[in-house]
């Protein structure tokens, strides 16, 4: 009776969101190995792959979490559209004052992230580790090479950073929102809002630094 309730759905979105945040955080940690050079970076990638079938479990879990996050969000969004009562609700739509840009574009930033993540997985995770794209100066550098080759392209970099900014926006509302939705310590609201903003900024800076670094490095 209650498992289908609005709050339950939102708490599911919040909880899966939290897990995804953990993933993003570790993902960034892994990515930052790039600064240590191809050896360390590739051995990190290699170690990850060497667990073999064991990696399948976290990957499947991650996939399920991702799907749940999206499915429940879709359910919530559909209900919200219905509840609003009409597509163009007020002839003069105006924020009363509290709504942030990050909040108002949540479903869109989410959609954009979804599309990009698929592309990203195909682009990096499923790429042939020793294929043409991994070649630097005539020899394969594995995943490092693929990353390096991709980020050499300024257009690719801009698209990537653009995506990261969306991810940041998604996170800066998402983090504080998940705290509110799970009903954690209402009194800390302003602190949590601050943490949320800084966390998002950190993620943006962390992820964006890599293409910039590679781009600068690749310049003759």
């Amino acid at each position: 009776m209650f498992s289908n309730s609005s709050i339950f759905k939102k708490q599911v979105v919040a909880f899966t969101g939290l897990l995804l945040i953990f993933f993003i955080f570790t993902h960034l940690g892994g990515n930052l190995f790039i600064y240590a050079g191809p050896g360390v970076f590739n051995s990190y990638a290699h170690k990850l792959h060497s667990v073999g079938p064991l990696l399948l479990l976290p990957r499947t879990l991650l996939f399920i979490i991702f799907v749940i996050h999206i499915t429940f969000t879709c359910l919530v969004v559909i209900e919200n559209i219905k509840a609003r009562g009409g597509h163009k609700r007020y002839s003069m739509q105006k924020s009363v004052g509290n709504r942030s840009m990050a909040e108002s574009i949540m479903p869109y930033s989410g959609l954009y992230i979804f599309v990009f993540v698929i592309f990203h997985i195909i682009d990096f995770a499923f790429a042939n580790q020793h294929g043409v794209r991994s070649f630097l100066h005539g020899r394969s550098y594995g995943l490092y090479g693929i990353v390096f080759n991709s980020f050499k392209d300024p257009v690719y970099d801009l698209l990537y950073i653009f995506f990261i900014c969306f991810l940041g926006l998604h996170l800066c509302h998402g983090v504080q929102s998940l705290v509110q939705t799970s009903g954690f310590r209402p009194k800390w609201a302003s602190v949590i809002k601050m943490i949320s903003d800084y966390f998002a900024l950190l993620m943006i800076l962390g992820f964006s630094s890599i293409p910039i670094y590679v781009y600068i490095l690749s310049r003759p």
Binding site: N80, A83, N98, R99, E103, M106, S177, T181
Partner: peptide, 16 residues
């Protein structure tokens, strides 16, 4: 939920 009210997306427009 049964009445057809939407879900909170934490925009806090209500408070304002």
């Amino acid at each position: 939920d049964h009445e057809g009210f939407g879900n909170c997306s934490n925009s806090y427009e209500c408070e304002a």
